[in-house]
Every structure is written in C-alpha cells, then in structure tokens.
C-alpha cells in the first residue's frame, strides 16, 4: 500500500501541475469573486469562508477524474485488481494521494487567500481547521465518483454531476463551522458533524468505490 502511495505521489510530482493546477484555480476563483461582488471589505469578509470553501471544493473536483482514469487506460487497474492488494486498500491509498496533492495544499493556501477576501483574525484559523477536517471527505467522495465513472469516455462531466450533490452536507457543515468560528461563535456542533462525515465516508465509501471499480473492469 505504501508502494502505491509513493508511486502515485511520484507520478503527481513528475506530471507537474499535480499540486499547482488546483492551487492556481483556487487562487483565480478567489480573485474573481471581488470583481463580481464589489470591493467592499465588509461584504467580502462576510462571504469569505463560504467563497473559500466553494473554491476549494471546485479545485478539488478538477483533478478527481485522474484518480483512476489513467490507471484504467494504461491497464494498471486490471493488474492492481489481480495483485495481492485489496481493492478497498488501493481506493483509500489513491484517495489519500489525491488529498495530499490537492486537499492539503488547498488547506494550507486558504488562510493566505483569506487575506484577499479581507478575512479577519480568527477566521484564518477556522478556515484552515475546517478544510483540514473536511477535505479528506471531499477526496474520498470524489474517489467514489471517479470509481463509478472510470470506464466511461465522457466521464468528466458526469463525474461532476454525480459528485457535487454528494458534497452538499460536507460543504454545509464546513462552511458553517468556518463562518461561526470567524464570527467568534460556538463551532462544536458543525465541527463534530463535519468530522463525523469525514470519518463515516472514509470508513464506508472505500467498499462502495472498490465494488464500483470491480464492476467497471470486468
């Protein structure tokens, strides 16, 4: 499993753009918002947590189709399926690799991008914390969506259509916790719900995703 993680990370680095593209997209979304809603600091500060969450979510979506598609095309997925590695484990590792190359950089960048959105003091901390807890769920749900669409020729658009509704609860609790935290309100409930979603998703979705891959390659 470690071998697979190392390989996927190495591939992401060699391919270039693995880390950079999602981040650049995130930055552009964050920059575009003030152009659309106006430069008033107060408005920007109020919508900042939500915008950063939506931006991170969309940036995450960009690279989802690569989780399994490349391995499917070059035949590695067939070979992995016959290897002594449970498919569930492979799914978890690949979701983890996706998170390390996408979710984690986004999480680290979000507090900095918050400055562009006129975010105030505790807000930076809470956007970091909520994304840190929530982005693993985004990667895992995304891996499930990628597993469903892995064999399809025009899977990319369909993948977005399938995954975005599944992202709703994560987004609601994540953005709510970030907003409340930034405003100095109690965050325990949404944070716990967010953590619960991540834990549940990581515990159960690998089985559904592995089943989908087995169906897709047979």
């Amino acid at each position: 499993m470690i071998a697979l993680l190392v390989r996927d990370l190495r591939l992401a680095v060699r391919a270039g753009g693995g880390f950079g593209l999602g981040l650049a997209f995130f930055l552009i979304v964050t920059v575009l918002v003030p152009f659309a809603v106006g430069p008033e600091g107060e408005t920007l500060a109020r919508i900042a947590p939500g915008i950063l969450w939506v931006g991170a979510l969309l940036a995450c979506l960009l690279s989802l189709d690569r989780i399994f598609q490349l391995d499917f095309e070059d035949g590695s997925l067939d070979l992995l399926a016959t290897a002594p590695l449970p498919m569930e484990g492979a799914v978890v590792v690949k979701a983890l690799a996706h998170w390390l190359t996408t979710g984690l950089p986004l999480t680290l960048a979000a507090p900095v991008f918050g400055i562009l959105m006129n975010m105030q003091a505790p807000g930076h901390w809470w956007i970091f914390v909520t994304l840190l807890i929530g982005t693993p769920a985004l990667s895992m749900i995304g891996a499930f969506g990628a597993a469903l669409t892995v064999g399809l020729k025009r899977g990319g658009l369909l993948l977005s259509l399938l995954v975005l509704p599944l992202y709703v609860p994560t987004l609601i609790f994540g953005a709510e916790a970030a907003t409340r935290g930034g405003a100095g309100m109690a965050v325990t409930t949404p944070i716990l719900m967010l953590a619960g979603i991540t834990a549940g998703v990581v515990a159960f979705l690998p089985f559904a995703a592995a089943a989908a891959i087995r169906i897709n390659i047979r």
């Binding site: 499930f144 469903l148 064999g151 399938l162 509704p165 599944l166 709703v168 609860p169 609601i172 609790f173 709510e176 409930t189 949404p190 719900m193 979603i197 979705l205 559904a208 089943a211 989908a212 169906i215 897709n216 047979r218």
Partner: peptide, 28 residues
C-alpha cells in the same frame, strides 16, 4: 448489466447522502 450494478451502488450511497443532506440543510 454494468449500468444496473453501478446505478444501484449510486442509489444506495445517494440515499445515505440524501438523508445526510436533509439533516445538514435543516441545521443550516
């Protein structure tokens, strides 16, 4: 048959997330 299998998996996972969304939206 592949379509039937995959949509069935999606229906199950989707149902769980639909219920979850209902609670999330209520909270929101």
């Amino acid at each position: 048959d592949t379509a039937a299998d995959l949509t069935s998996v999606l229906a199950i996972v989707g149902s769980v997330f639909a219920v979850l969304s209902r609670y999330a939206v209520n909270f929101w």
